[in-house]
Design a protein around this nucleic acid. Sequence first.
DNA 1: TTGGATTTGTACGTATGTATA
DNA 2: GTATACATACGTACAAATCCA
Lengths: 264, 264
Amino acid sequence: MLELIVNYVASLFINSNLNKDGEIMAKEKYLEIAKIINDRINDGTYQARQPLPDQESLAKELGVSRLTVKKALDGLERKGLVYKQSGLGTYVSGTIPIQTRYDSPANMFTGLRNLLGRDNVKSQIIKFNVEFPNENIQKYLCLKHSEPVYNIVRLRIVDDSPLIIEHTYMPVKLVPNLDENILHKSIYQYIHKELKLKFGHAYRKIRACKADQYDQKYLNAKKSDPMLELEQIVWLTNGDPIEYSTSRNRYDQRDYTIVENNRF
Amino acid sequence: MLELIVNYVASLFINSNLNKDGEIMAKEKYLEIAKIINDRINDGTYQARQPLPDQESLAKELGVSRLTVKKALDGLERKGLVYKQSGLGTYVSGTIPIQTRYDSPANMFTGLRNLLGRDNVKSQIIKFNVEFPNENIQKYLCLKHSEPVYNIVRLRIVDDSPLIIEHTYMPVKLVPNLDENILHKSIYQYIHKELKLKFGHAYRKIRACKADQYDQKYLNAKKSDPMLELEQIVWLTNGDPIEYSTSRNRYDQRDYTIVENNRF
DNA sequence: TTGGATTTGTACGTATGTATA
DNA sequence: GTATACATACGTACAAATCCA
């Protein structure tokens, strides 16, 4: 089974610069603080189920105001890394006993190559067309029939073993000049780094279904094997839908994980 | 197929009081504001893809400071209801074209009865034991062998049709005096309203699997049918794990949906 | 039961920065 | 360049939750 090394929080700091030592540095102070605290949790400075220093102390130590510390902690709490108890303090969350190295977070705006490491992911292009969108795709991506979309089917291969069939539609007008070279690497990388577009939110549906011809051919699924399917629409921060896709996984190779938080 | 009527945001206001007119009223101003804006989006006062009044105007109109409005909008943005563009304004998110009335949000801390309506959900108790936890359950719920757990298997029946098999473990010390009467209704209701406990966060795994004997017997699944399984641990706001459970669904009756946001 | 100490949460004001048209 | 609107950051004051003596 596929082994993943996931740092949920690393993805928080994609809007960051490099300082003179080549280290990741967020532009905003609260992200800096969040990263420092996150690192201290990871390196064991702050232990699971133990309290962090209070906000005032952290503020003093790190040279920011208490509210900036609070904003950082709020974010880390929403990600499930810490929990806060009014009147008591802020604590490091306990380890997650059902989490394994094979878990694959569903909340990923960064793409598979970013998650698994660029050298581990290869892509076989099964289909790469430009076409006028049918009625469904028009609806999903807010397009007119005259506005073309890419129709892409890729087999994502991890450690030389076929893992996912991804079927992706994207508006040409939002992602110009897509080519096979990019498809072999990472579309998300291209969208973020080259086009400077930023994902805002996504709606995802996860379901089980039966293996179809593609699954059997490309993922070596048996006809009687269940499949795990993720269907999603992804929007940019300006509200435009940029992607409609379905990803099909073998039931014995992948599951999707979610960290939820009961806070506003 | 099961028809759900979901209001994602309603669950935001569970920490609320009733005012003299019996209306839901949050204690905190920013929750009040969020509810007002949420309602205006639902009733069409603010239209999809259209800008809201700017924060300053809303603050003035609603008699709070701009930062309180911002805090409300930040929360609504994280839930996917609005998106903000620095320098431009705050906009109502577009409708979600792949969302159907059958979707079932995975991010539910409120329980099935709350989601579907109390009159629509019945529960058949297949198993209700108290026992000493095995090694796995000890690990999942941070318990010693000497600390008993409930071992509960319920068939959840919606509109007289069997929908889910839920297998739940809960520590007796955190949920005292559980009885069959409560199991027939809602455990979550009992935990929230009677015991005054509050859920903090959850870790969920969603996978596809093959139908087992239980699925075939109670959900009328065929042997060759895929099943959709949700496995989760739920923690209280004080960091204690309170629930380990697995829920199995027929592949043709349910999918799990997620709204994700790319913000800190 | 009460009161004090500690810690987090809410709310507002203000100033400045940043993104966009 | 200018105007607009949202974001960050700090300060301050007070409220609410928790624990302990």
